[in-house]
Design a protein around this nucleic acid. Structure first.
Length: 564
RNA sequence: GCAGGUGUAAUCUAGCGGUCAGGAUUUUAGCCUUCCAAGCUAAAUACUCGGGUUCGAAUCCCGACACCUGCACCA
């Protein structure tokens, strides 16, 4: 077997630039860290990966796709938690370089350090002589806001942010999508698009970017039924798992992992498999792919379970997909901030006659006391039943503050109601893919070098160019035949590269280096017998095929069914 | 953001205060060539940017920017 040399990130990025996959952005102006442009081949590769992903989610799993805005008003990111959690006040030790959350250091010095401004926090830390555990002195308090802030509209405008993830565009469209999907759970929505994070220290080429491409799927499920119809057919498939219990890597069946409680539920498990299937289909090496469960401490507070697909590349094990059960957190947050009803109605098979103890407001007491707020209090009471009464008191929110109301303000009445169903806040299962990272991992995993000769063994489905078309030499009419064949392929939507320059070997080499799976050569025999050679990139073997059959030959090999 | 290292064509690189910055690969034009980076001829493209020291700077110094390695960050 070939001695495969491990590719370094430097060599990889050099090839990416030389061959038009990825360019450092704004290079003629000195470049900006964390920004890269996709060149002609990189753009094609990215598009092909995204298309395959769409096939998986839209055609195979029945998701719908939207395309949301990348700019959003502040309220959206208040609700999502990004405004507060994404902007930390921090201080760095001048001596040892360690960074700390400034508000954490101020704990015990102030009842609510979270509420302080930069200046106040600065003063508080200075006044109390807070120092680093190493004994060093702290530099000034700084704000790290990981979101790009902007103004929407002229003048003062409204504060807006570039979205740090695409997911929010789906959550804010929940009502529209729920209706579009005929008001039934589960339903899923995907989005391919850009997100923005003002990273403190972008590094590692295209792995940590300030503007990046994501492919995110949000699946809205019944909180009490996290099963999935297609689960049964894949539950015996095996993947490499690294559970957070002991951190030991195991190869295990999807179903077994669910049965043993390692993976939280069937749907999550199913999409771990879909992710495995998708990643290997675009060319991630199964031997360099694993699923690592987030540690309890690492998991976002709202997530109940989260698995990262990690690829082994020159930077080490790198997260390329995160698959999380986010519970009802996102929709609940947006309900709280927007007051919109982001629930699903679960219809019972049979309407139920239920009796319950309802709370009925006494307007004689509430009206004079609360005036305009009485209507809102009525609505709150109607949403409750007797179980909300504690020590004879009912708690309602008036102008944002809780108010306890005694029995003078309400009656408890036994009511009989017909109930057709129940409203639930759907839970969200989110497979979130870093497209740039997947693309880069594909390149590294496709990289094969022997004696300085580089071949990118990209899967045909994602290869930017599918077929190189050459006349053996540009004379004696061979170029006309080759050009006609080239056109015939392109007319069928197959990306080709026509080349009649230099030696045939050099042309093959050029195609090998950009991952073109097949090269078709028109030679003297073609002129007489009408057949051509098709040369395979990975084996360098040649097959003779009638020129008229080439289009069908290629289409047949590019035809990919749905994966699992 | 901190500390250290590095910046010469599209890529890899020579240079170490002193003639038009050298080579290789690549690319382009032409010749040659009957299938795997062949050969010949010509051509194109570079000292990251901005200051300073010096008679003279790719070379020494300062700053910015970018890249690499650690640290920190990565909801």
């Amino acid at each position: 077997m070939n001695q495969m040399k491990e590719v370094s990130s430097g060599e990889m990025l050099s090839l990416c630039k030389r061959r038009g996959f990825i360019y450092p952005a704004y290079e003629i102006y000195g470049g900006i860290a964390g920004l890269y442009d996709y060149g002609p081949l990189g753009t094609a590769l990215k598009g092909n990966i995204a298309d395959l992903w769409r096939r998986t989610y839209v055609l195979q799993e029945g998701f719908v796709e939207i395309d949301g805005d990348t700019i959003g008003p502040e309220a959206v990111f208040k609700a999502s938690g990004h405004v507060d959690n994404f902007a930390d006040l921090s201080v760095t030790c001048k001596a040892c370089g360690e960074s700390f959350r400034a508000d954490h250091l101020a704990k015990g010095l102030h009842p609510n350090p979270d509420s302080l401004s930069i200046e106040e926090l600065q003063g508080l830390l200075r006044a109390n002589g807070v120092r680093c555990p190493c004994g060093g002195e702290f530099a000034d308090v700084e704000e790290f806001n990981l979101m790009f802030k902007t103004k929407i509209g002229p003048g003062a405008g409204r504060t807006g942010y570039l979205r740090p993830e695409t997911a929010q565009s789906i959550f804010v469209n929940y009502i529209n999508l729920y209706r579009h999907c005929r008001e039934r759970l589960p339903f899923g929505c995907i989005q391919v698009g850009r997100g923005y994070r003002n990273e403190i220290s972008p590094r590692q080429g295209v792995i940590r970017l300030r503007e990046f491409n994501m492919m995110e799927a949000e699946l809205f499920v019944d909180p009490e039924d996290k099963s999935w119809p297609r689960y049964g057919r894949i539950k015996d498939r095996k993947v490499r798992l690294v559970p957070n219990t002991d951190g030991v890597e195991v190869e295990m069946g999807i179903g077994e992992a669910v049965d043993r409680g390692i993976i939280g539920n069937e749907t999550l498990a199913y999409f771990i498999w879909v992710t495995y299937d998708f990643l290997t289909a675009v060319g991630i090496d199964p031997a360099r792919l694993r699923f690592r469960q987030h540690l309890k401490a690492e998991m976002a507070h709202y997530a109940s379970d989260c698995w990262d697909a990690e690829a082994l590349i020159s930077f080490g094990w790198t997260e390329i997909v995160g698959i999380a059960d986010r519970g009802c957190w996102d929709l609940s947050q947006h309900m709280r901030f927007s007051k919109a009803d982001l629930t699903a109605f679960k219809r019972f098979d049979e309407p139920k006659e239920v009796e319950r103890d309802a709370i009925r407001p006494k307007f004689g007491a509430i009206g004079p006391r609360f005036k305009g707020a009485a209507g809102d209090i009525k609505r709150q009471m109607e949403a409750m039943d007797a179980s909300a009464i504690h020590d004879g008191l009912v708690t309602v929110i008036v102008d944002g503050t809780p108010v306890d109301l005694d029995a003078d303000h309400y009656d408890v009445v036994r009511v009989r109601e017909k109930v057709n169903g129940v409203r639930v806040v759907p839970h969200v299962i989110e497979p979130s893919h870093g497209l740039d990272r997947i693309l880069y991992s594909c390149l590294e995993h496709a990289y094969a070098e022997r004696d300085g000769y580089v071949t990118l063994r990209l899967r045909p489905a994602v290869a930017p160019i599918k077929v190189g078309v050459f006349p053996l030499m540009a004379k004696d009419g061979m170029e006309e035949v080759a050009k006609a064949l080239d056109l015939a392929l392109r007319e069928e939507g197959i990306a080709t590269y026509y080349d009649d320059s230099g030696s045939i070997g050099r042309r093959y080499a050029r195609m090998d280096e950009v991952g073109t799976p097949w090269c078709v050569t028109v030679d003297y025999d073609t002129l007489e017998k009408g057949d051509v050679t098709i040369r395979d990139r990975d084996t360098a073997e040649q097959a003779r095929v009638p020129a008229d059959d080439v289009v069908a030959w290629v289409k047949d090999r590019l035809k990919h069914g749905l994966v699992c």
